[in-house]
Amino acid sequence: MGKSNSKLKPEVVEELTRKTYFTEKEVQQWYKGFIKDCPSGQLDAAGFQKIYKQFFPFGDPTKFATFVFNVFDENKDGRIEFSEFIQALSVTSRGTLDEKLRWAFKLYDLDNDGYITRNEMLDIVDAIYQMVGNTVELPEEENTPEKRVDRIFAMMDKNADGKLTLQEFQEGSKADPSIVQALSLYDGLV
């Protein structure tokens, strides 16, 4: 993909415009910024974590950033290329609610087996709590990752089998306004 070129080839721009919710001009602008920050044309896990640390200076986002990195890194080569970056950004910032929920499901399904187990969710929720640090005051019933996961599973795990399917996750998330709101945070920002 033209590693350190400051412009993408027209056919690449066209393809990314088809695969995302961005215009050709927006794709070019994002590429310019991506190459400025990642001259090699790729972003590794350490660089990704560094970006998260800028956004969450009062907590430790390392663990959460690693989980997000793994979802962005579609081809699992340990690096995020621009096409992976822009497609994930498109879903998280401008995707439909169902697209965002499928993306979030992939984030929580750490072993990619098609289910979110209690332990997988606990890993992610714990990482989120570490990331936000003491900057967020949580209600008593959610002031630990374990309590939050218990509440989520009580609401979403309809067949009580200890794991969530994509359908259970989507339906449960849509029924909880706070989850829908959290997924909409990026709307309109890009």
Rank of each mutant, 00 (worst) to 15 (best):
S6I: 03
S90E: 09
T20N: 13
T135D: 06
R151C: 03
T66P: 09
K19T: 09
K7S: 02
L101S: 03
F69H: 08
G47D: 15
Y31V: 11
D150C: 10
P57C: 08
K100M: 12
G114R: 02
M131A: 05
S4W: 00
F58I: 01
A182I: 00
D161S: 14
K163D: 06
M121T: 13
D98Q: 08
E74A: 04
L122E: 15
S40V: 06
E142C: 11
I128W: 00
N143W: 11
P177H: 14
K32P: 13
L89M: 04
I51F: 09
A160C: 05
W30R: 04
Q49Y: 09
N75R: 05
T20S: 10
E11I: 15
D37C: 14
K50C: 07
K106F: 00
K3E: 05
A104D: 09
D77F: 15
F105C: 09
A160P: 05
Q87L: 06
V180E: 15
F67L: 13
T17A: 12
A104S: 08
T20M: 04
D98W: 11
F55Y: 02
V91P: 15
K76I: 12
Y21P: 02
K163C: 14
G78F: 15
S83C: 03
L183T: 12
F82H: 15
R18V: 13
I124L: 05
P10W: 14
V13Q: 14
D73F: 08
E141V: 00
E74Q: 06
D73L: 13
Y115V: 10
E11M: 15
K174Y: 00
D44G: 06
A88D: 13
A182P: 09
K147T: 07
V125P: 01
W30I: 01
P61K: 11
Q29R: 07
E141D: 04
G172W: 12
Y129M: 02
E84S: 05
T144S: 11
D37V: 11
V132S: 04
K19M: 07
V180T: 02
E11K: 06
K7G: 00
Q130L: 09
I86V: 08
M131N: 10
S90F: 04
E137I: 04
S173P: 14
Y115D: 05
N112A: 10
F169V: 11
E120V: 06
E120M: 02
A127M: 03
F105Y: 08
E26L: 14
L89N: 09
T23N: 06
F58C: 00
V27E: 01
A88G: 08
E142D: 15
D60M: 00
R151D: 07
V13A: 10
N143V: 04
I152Y: 13
E137N: 05
A65G: 10
Y31Q: 15
D98K: 09
L107W: 10
N143L: 04
D157P: 07
E146W: 06
V132K: 05
L183V: 06
F64R: 10
A127F: 03
S93Y: 05
S178R: 11
K9L: 11
L122V: 04
Q42V: 07
P145N: 10
I179M: 09
Y31I: 07
R94F: 13
T92M: 07
L43I: 02
V71I: 03
N119E: 08
E15S: 13
F56M: 08
L164F: 11
G59Q: 00
P10Y: 14
Y52R: 00
F82V: 14
E84F: 00
I152A: 08
F169P: 02
N143H: 08
T62S: 09
Y52M: 08
R148C: 05
I51Q: 07
V27M: 13
G2D: 01
A104H: 13
Y31R: 15
F48H: 14
Q42D: 02
K163Y: 11
E11T: 14
Q42G: 08
L166Q: 06
L189P: 03
S184V: 02
E137L: 10
D187N: 04
A182W: 14
Y31K: 09
R148P: 00
P139M: 00
Q181M: 01
A46D: 12
V27Y: 15
T117N: 03
F69Y: 00
I86D: 10
F85C: 09
D126Y: 13
Q130H: 06
I51M: 06
S90Y: 13
E81P: 01
E99K: 07
D98N: 06
S184F: 09
E99C: 15
G162F: 05
L110D: 11
Y31H: 14
T23H: 11
G188T: 07
D123L: 02
T117W: 03
P10M: 12
T62L: 03
P10R: 12
Q170W: 14
N143P: 05
K32A: 12
F105T: 01
K36N: 06
V68S: 03
T17Q: 14
E142P: 07
S93G: 09
T92P: 12
E84D: 07
D77E: 12
F85E: 13
V91H: 04
A175P: 01
V27K: 15
I51C: 12
T23E: 12
L185I: 06
L110P: 08
E14F: 14
F153W: 10
L89K: 13
R102W: 10
D161K: 02
S93A: 14
Y21E: 07
F82G: 00
F34P: 04
F72L: 11
G95M: 02
Y186A: 05
D157I: 03
K106S: 00
E24Y: 14
Q170A: 09
G114A: 13
A160G: 05
T92H: 03
M121K: 02
K3R: 05
L164V: 08
K3P: 07
E99D: 06
S184C: 06
Q49F: 11
D37S: 12
V13I: 11
A160L: 12
Q28W: 13
V71S: 14
E120C: 00
R118E: 10
Q181G: 12
A182G: 08
T144A: 12
F72P: 14
N112T: 09
F34M: 12
T135F: 14
I86L: 10
E146M: 07
V190P: 13
Y129R: 00
F69R: 08
L89F: 08
K7A: 02
P139N: 09
P10A: 04
S178T: 15
T62D: 07
Q29L: 15
T92Y: 07
Q49I: 00
D111N: 11
V91R: 14
V27C: 15
N159A: 12
V136Y: 05
V68L: 15
F48Y: 13
F58Y: 00
A127Q: 08
N134S: 10
D73S: 00
A88P: 13
N75G: 07
F56V: 04
R151E: 14
Q49A: 10
A104G: 05
R151V: 12
I179L: 05
K63P: 04
R79A: 09
Y31G: 07
E24T: 02
V91F: 10
A154G: 05
K174S: 09
D176C: 01
Y108G: 01
A175V: 10
G162V: 10
T17F: 14
F169I: 10
K19Q: 02
K53V: 05
F56K: 01
I124R: 15
V125N: 06
T62G: 05
K53G: 01
E99M: 01
P139Q: 11
Q181R: 12
S178K: 02
V149I: 15
E171D: 05
I80G: 13
V149N: 04
E11W: 10
G95N: 12
F34E: 01
A182N: 06
V136I: 10
V132Y: 00
E146T: 00
L110F: 12
E142G: 08
